[in-house]
């Protein structure tokens, strides 16, 4: 699993990747009450806002950690947004993206580097 400084994660499986928000981000947001998922078929560029996660108090943009085509979205989050809090780095994934540039993944932080980054916040 690789991480961005905006607290998204990427888990590569072949030429696709699952993406979501980190446990740190989920904890910082608090209770998630609504998730706006990206449309399947949409092409996203790294850094684009591609989903919105809302807590009781605020709406937060989620930025695409990599570029590619959205090939699946986690519809379970529409009816059970709290899964993001329960398992942010697992069943609380947001979307599956077909990678358009695999080298983008290598430039992201591994878990050790991300943990080190978190300790600076």
């Amino acid at each position: 699993m690789r991480f961005t400084k905006d607290h998204e994660w990427v888990l590569v499986e072949g030429d696709t990747a699952l993406v979501g928000i980190s446990a740190y981000a989920a904890d910082a947001l608090g209770d998630v009450v609504f998730v706006e998922l990206p449309e399947v078929g949409k092409t996203v560029n790294q850094g684009d806002s591609f989903a919105v996660v809302e807590s009781v108090k605020a709406a937060s943009d989620v930025y695409a950690p990599i570029s590619g085509e959205v090939i699946a979205a986690n519809d379970e989050l529409s009816s059970s947004p709290e899964v993001i809090n329960a398992a942010p780095e697992g069943t609380g994934w947001l979307a599956k993206i077909k990678l358009s540039d695999a080298t983008q993944v290598e430039a992201l932080m591994d878990r050790d580097a991300y943990e080190a980054f978190l300790s600076t916040l």
Partner: peptide, 20 residues
């Protein structure tokens, strides 16, 4: 508690979670 600035004070915005 998570502490946030509110009206010039460091105040608790939540302890266990807003919904609970």
């Amino acid at each position: 508690a998570r502490i946030v600035p509110f009206a010039g004070y460091a105040m608790p915005v939540q302890y266990d979670g807003v919904l609970g």
